[in-house]
Design a binder for these strands. Structure first.
Lengths: 125, 125
DNA sequence: GTTACCAGTATCACCGAGTATACCAATATG
DNA sequence: CATATTGGTATACTCGGTGATACTGGTAAC
């Protein structure tokens, strides 16, 4: 069974749909919002400091970054570490738990690029 | 190169960050929203007619269904077919392209289930 | 001719996510 | 001293996704 066949099978099996849709909506709930995945992506790119993350995500405001970081920390998707030296240094890192998102992020990046190409190609055609 | 290595390589390449954020946000935009997945679910369950889909999704309004169907058609996630007979018959079906979303959906289902387990485990612990 | 179904549109309104902008306390540099 | 950076908060605002409700134009059965 190929991945595609498996996908097709799951998508067309009525008996599992409720559970599948529930799991999907759980995942969507966790990642929804405009900035959570870009933030995870930025952290995975090696950014740890608040301003570094902010600069690495075009268009985000300090307010939204602050809010999202707080919420994601509460959801155990990332860890906030303060080194008590002066000047105070704050570092954000993704948790192991968050790393399990890696596969999804890659698939979504892949799909997003393909999609952009596809839609653009057909508009110009 | 393993999947993990590939992931690490992609996630740690700073040059592609803007493009990746864009791709991510595109994908998020396409699947987020309250009704898109339930609609795909309904279509996969065999519903094709507007009123059938509407009835199969508790709480959706004709307005939202209409809007979402239009948008998803524009994103080529589904196809709208009109048989010109009287009375006019309109049928919606998911496209092959929508099936290409399968990989992401599978990853998200997998993660959602894991997440549910994790949360449950921690609350009972 | 009244009621009901189909495939939608049209208006009005709410509300929360997201934006813009300014500000704060601390540290550092010159 | 002035200015800049870090790690954020506070306040006010906008905007679009969503909801509620009503309506249209056609077909059809009773």
């Amino acid at each position: 069974m190929t991945k595609q066949e498996k996908a097709a099978a799951i998508l067309s099996d009525p008996r599992n749909q409720r559970e599948e849709v529930q799991a999907l909506q759980d995942t969507i709930y966790v990642i929804c919002g405009k900035w959570k995945l870009p933030i995870i992506n930025s952290l995975c790119n090696g950014n740890k400091r608040f301003r570094d993350i902010e600069r690495s995500i075009p268009g985000i405001t300090t307010r939204m970054l602050s809010r999202e970081l707080k919420e994601m920390e509460a959801n155990q998707l990332l860890k906030r570490t303060v080194t008590a030296d002066t000047p105070v240094l704050v570092e954000y890192t993704v948790t192991d738990y968050c790393q399990s998102f890696g596969d999804i992020i890659l698939e979504m990046i892949k799909w997003g690029k393909q999609h952009r190409e596809k839609i653009r190609g057909e508009h110009s055609a």
